[in-house]
Design a protein around this nucleic acid. Structure first.
Lengths: 127, 127
DNA sequence: CACTAGGGATAGGGTTAT
DNA sequence: TATAACCCTATCCCTAGT
């Protein structure tokens, strides 16, 4: 409806965005919304919307790293030196933007969002 | 470095650009960056960068004119007819891209940026 | 080919809504 | 207060025309 001041992102849109980044690269927002593979899932989004959403998703991970670092730091004081280093970056591997409940192991784009995201986070950004 | 997507212009660079335009003319971007007088101040800039920067410096003044026109219009309703017409164009004379605090009356290029800028703004643009 | 002009896209800071 | 969504605009990119 018109009254929607904020148009909240759905899990489907987030999937399409992440898959689009996996295919075209981060920063190629216009390419993503023009790609017929993703366009139908991003009908009400502009290239700017995609950019802003991706930034928010990255911030989410960044903030998680910080709070995890804090949590782990506290935990380590208690546990001292255990093996199996469940490091901060490993925690990020478990981050996903589509709830597992409504997400079979493979999404409509051939891989789950968590995997795609992680892969992209580790890829150096252009320019 | 690679990470710097946005390379913000410094006051020094803006001075060099404006002085370069005063000497070579607007649109002579390649001449300006090749001029040994300005080149050392524009090391990380291309001719395209100069063109783009000058474009939004002009826009800045244009937008200021508009908002000033609006402000003055409101003010004039109140003040009615006073003398000393602090007109819109006079306001623009005070525009400068180097803070006065770090800018003596004369810059390294022999005149202050505000003057050079204003002079150039009034000069008809080629093409 | 080198350059410029102008349209268009992106990055990052800032703002609003929740 | 925190954060998702959105806005502003300086900077950067693409490319037709010269």
């Amino acid at each position: 409806m018109l009254g929607h001041r904020k148009n909240k992102w759905t899990a489907e849109e987030e999937e399409a965005l992440v898959a689009g980044i996996a295919k075209h690269g981060s920063g190629k927002w216009a390419n993503i919304i023009e790609d017929p593979e993703f366009a139908p899932h991003l009908l009400d989004r502009t290239n700017i919307n995609l950019k802003d959403k991706w930034r928010n998703m990255k911030n989410r991970v960044g903030n998680m790293e910080k709070s995890m670092a804090h949590t782990l730091k506290s935990a380590l004081v208690v546990v001292s030196n255990e093996s199996s280093p469940s490091s901060s970056s490993d925690m990020i591997n478990d981050t996903r933007y589509v709830p597992m409940s409504q997400n079979p192991s493979r999404s409509r784009f051939g891989f789950n969002v968590g995997e795609a995201h992680l892969k992209l986070m580790k890829k150096p950004f252009k320019s």
